[in-house]
Deep mutational scan, measured.
Amino acid sequence: LRLEVKLGQGCFGEVWMGTWNGTTRVAIKTLKPGTMSPEAFLQEAQVMKKLRHEKLVQLYAVVSEEPIYIVTEYMSKGSLLDFLKGETGKYLRLPQLVDMAAQIASGMAYVERMNYVHRDLRAANILVGENLVCKVADFGLARLIEDNEYTARQGAKFPIKWTAPEAALYGRFTIKSDVWSFGILLTELTTKGRVPYPGMVNREVLDQVERGYRMPCPPECPESLHDLMCQCWRKEPEERPTFEYLQAFL
């Protein structure tokens, strides 16, 4: 395994491009020591290896001592969030954005069929390849993070704006909380990567959403798509659509 080009840095580690087995181009995620327990990670990795779908980033291998390494397929255009905010983002029109959403829903419909939960679905965790191919990455890892700023769910590192209220408040993460996050991801797509709930801080978002506030229809977004977002944001988790439905609708 060779680490060649550093692609990015996040709160919990770095991402590199490299070569595996001398020939395969891969992405390598390294986790800061202390982010998660190697034992817990190894268990999760076994499950992650079983998830194989064309719209999920394929896991190739893991190094399960500290520092933990995760070796996955390489996606040339990086994260969907950076892609939307970058040069190419300007030229993306609604049909392409909807197609990308459908690809993500397709990957998540598979996660749904496998009775698995992602827990951290957002544009930053979707990767883009050639020809606007989108794949879901980092599934299941969020559960293992041991950082206090994260586990408190009120901490600075927790993605509260993407998280369903029952998950943020009571830790009830299910495929239905993933559906909520998918609704937020749809706003990221239609606004080219704007942060959700602009002008609001995490605490406010939690309070307002509890009181029934939902983001309005983004500019140039059809009402039918906003309606779909609002279905994803129904207060009762069981009233939210399935990913199978979302995939078919898109």
Results as ranks from 00 to 15, higher is better:
residue 23 T to Y: 14
residue 101 A to H: 01
residue 137 A to R: 00
residue 59 L to I: 03
residue 70 I to L: 08
residue 87 E to T: 13
residue 116 Y to V: 15
residue 95 P to S: 08
residue 149 E to P: 05
residue 80 L to Y: 07
residue 32 K to H: 02
residue 220 E to Y: 11
residue 114 M to I: 04
residue 225 L to V: 06
residue 163 T to G: 01
residue 153 R to L: 05
residue 164 A to V: 00
residue 106 S to R: 14
residue 153 R to N: 08
residue 176 K to E: 11
residue 105 A to R: 01
residue 138 D to T: 01
residue 241 P to L: 04
residue 15 V to E: 02
residue 139 F to P: 02
residue 172 R to H: 13
residue 235 K to N: 12
residue 102 A to L: 09
residue 17 M to H: 10
residue 159 P to N: 03
residue 43 Q to D: 08
residue 61 A to M: 06
residue 128 V to Y: 05
residue 242 T to G: 14
residue 47 V to P: 00
residue 29 K to S: 01
residue 79 S to V: 03
residue 175 I to P: 15
residue 24 T to A: 08
residue 230 C to K: 14
residue 117 V to H: 02
residue 16 W to C: 15
residue 199 G to C: 15
residue 94 L to K: 07
residue 71 V to I: 08
residue 26 V to K: 05
residue 97 L to V: 09
residue 212 G to F: 05
residue 216 P to N: 09
residue 32 K to R: 08
residue 244 E to Q: 09
residue 225 L to F: 14
residue 237 P to E: 11
residue 200 M to H: 07
residue 93 R to P: 06
residue 37 S to L: 07
residue 62 V to D: 06
residue 83 F to Y: 09
residue 160 I to S: 00
residue 31 L to V: 04
residue 93 R to H: 07
residue 80 L to G: 13
residue 217 C to G: 10
residue 5 V to E: 13
residue 72 T to R: 06
residue 208 Q to R: 13
residue 242 T to Y: 14
residue 247 Q to G: 12
residue 99 D to S: 15
residue 106 S to P: 05
residue 122 R to A: 02
residue 61 A to G: 06
residue 181 S to K: 01
residue 99 D to H: 14
residue 39 E to P: 07
residue 187 T to V: 10
residue 178 D to K: 00
residue 162 W to E: 02
residue 52 R to W: 13
residue 70 I to V: 06
residue 98 V to R: 14
residue 196 P to N: 03
residue 38 P to R: 12
residue 17 M to I: 07
residue 70 I to Q: 04
residue 79 S to T: 05
residue 162 W to I: 02
residue 153 R to W: 06
residue 118 H to C: 02
residue 189 L to T: 06
residue 234 R to G: 10
residue 43 Q to M: 13
residue 239 E to A: 12
residue 186 L to N: 03
residue 17 M to L: 13
residue 135 K to Y: 09
residue 202 N to P: 06
residue 230 C to H: 14
residue 124 A to R: 03
residue 150 Y to A: 02
residue 80 L to W: 08
residue 114 M to L: 04
residue 182 F to T: 03
residue 174 T to V: 15
residue 153 R to A: 07
residue 161 K to H: 00
residue 209 V to G: 03
residue 189 L to P: 00
residue 158 F to C: 05
residue 32 K to Y: 03
residue 19 T to L: 12
residue 134 C to M: 09
residue 95 P to A: 08
residue 151 T to C: 08
residue 51 L to P: 01
residue 162 W to M: 00
residue 92 L to S: 12
residue 12 F to E: 00
residue 249 F to K: 06
residue 22 G to P: 15
residue 195 V to F: 10
residue 161 K to Q: 00
residue 129 G to W: 04
residue 210 E to Q: 08
residue 240 R to S: 01
residue 190 T to C: 13
residue 25 R to G: 11
residue 185 L to Y: 08
residue 198 P to V: 09
residue 58 Q to K: 13
residue 43 Q to I: 06
residue 234 R to Q: 09
residue 6 K to D: 13
residue 44 E to S: 02
